[in-house]
């Protein structure tokens, strides 16, 4: 029993990181109808921001987080202006390719500026974790799960109970009607990119003490997060959360009970199964066409 609980805890922890990055995928998809393949690089940038502010500059952790969030919001806005906005009237494919190009550019810029060496980032809490019987709860995983829960609640409140959140939802549902209602569509999309970059940055900050900070950090998470968003139902916010947690738990349990070397395969077997049996994902609605 202790083993299952330990695996569940770790799976939920790593799954929460996938969920945060998947949320970024989903929000941008809803607002723009394109997939942002640089979402993983947002996580990597968040990790580097924290290293620069707290390790290199020696600033307090809370200040490092604050600066990282501001920098990531600004970066999201710039990303929107440079990568999405010029191509907003083009079809799906050019924009997607543009985001892939941007992800390569970001990775190589960081590589050029900061070098290839992986580096360490201390955790938010300065103790390794707590033991509950035979189950060890890593403090960083506890923080990850808690932050994800808080963010989901905040996001729900923001989208359902604030005017800006409702405007963003309106834009994601129908840009033309939103525009006719006087909503600044361009501004709302800008805000969505900024928020998605912040989410990615938070994921990077949270996972960096466990996986270390390197240019490969984003790619390591992004592919699973993308699978999570499809499993949950692409474009669905609760689905992204559920998809992330399901993949995290499935790969951890699968690795222990079936095969460690095929750990990464379990996420994609799940993805394949969903695409085959329920392509709309867990929470997605089936789209049917009239004859």
């Amino acid at each position: 029993m202790a083993i299952i609980l330990q695996l569940l805890f770790t799976g939920l922890g790593i799954g929460a990181v996938y969920a945060l990055v998947a949320l970024g995928f989903v929000l941008i998809y809803r607002a723009t109808n394109v997939v942002n393949f640089a979402q993983g690089q947002f996580a990597m940038l968040g990790g580097y921001c924290m290293v620069i502010t707290t390790v290199d500059l020696g600033l307090p952790y809370w200040l490092g987080i604050l600066i990282t969030l501001v920098v990531m919001a600004g970066f999201g806005a710039i990303f929107n202006l440079g990568v999405y906005y010029p191509l907003r009237h083009r079809s799906f494919l050019p924009v997607v390719i543009s985001t892939i190009g941007a992800s390569i550019l970001i990775t190589n810029l960081v590589l050029g500026l900061y070098g290839p060496e992986p580096t360490t980032l201390p955790g938010v809490i300065d103790f390794p974790g707590v033991s509950l019987g035979a189950v060890f709860l890593d403090s960083q995983y506890l923080v990850i799960i808690a932050v994800t829960l808080i963010l989901v609640l905040l996001q729900y409140f923001f989208f359902e109970h604030t005017l800006v959140g409702k405007k963003m939802q309106a834009v994601s549902q129908d840009k033309e009607v939103a525009s006719l209602l006087g909503i600044n569509v361009t501004g709302m999309i800008m805000l969505t990119f900024a928020y998605s970059a912040v989410l990615g940055g938070i994921a990077g900050v949270l996972v960096a003490p466990i996986l270390f900070v390197s240019v490969g950090l984003g790619a390591q998470i992004a592919l699973k997060a993308f699978a999570a968003s499809i499993i949950g139902g692409f474009g669905d916010v609760p689905g992204a959360i559920a998809g992330g947690l399901i993949i995290g738990v499935a790969e951890t349990l699968g690795a222990f009970y079936i095969s460690v070397p095929y750990k990464d395969a379990f996420a994609f077997i799940l993805l394949f199964a969903f695409l085959l049996i329920r392509p709309q994902g867990i929470f997605g609605e089936k789209v049917s066409q009239k004859a």
Partner: peptide, 20 residues
Amino acid sequence: AQGYANQTPDFTPVVLAVKG
């Protein structure tokens, strides 16, 4: 005997197998 794929983000299953 535990084999793992390179670039694994989490070794909990391996560690638990070793421990057990």
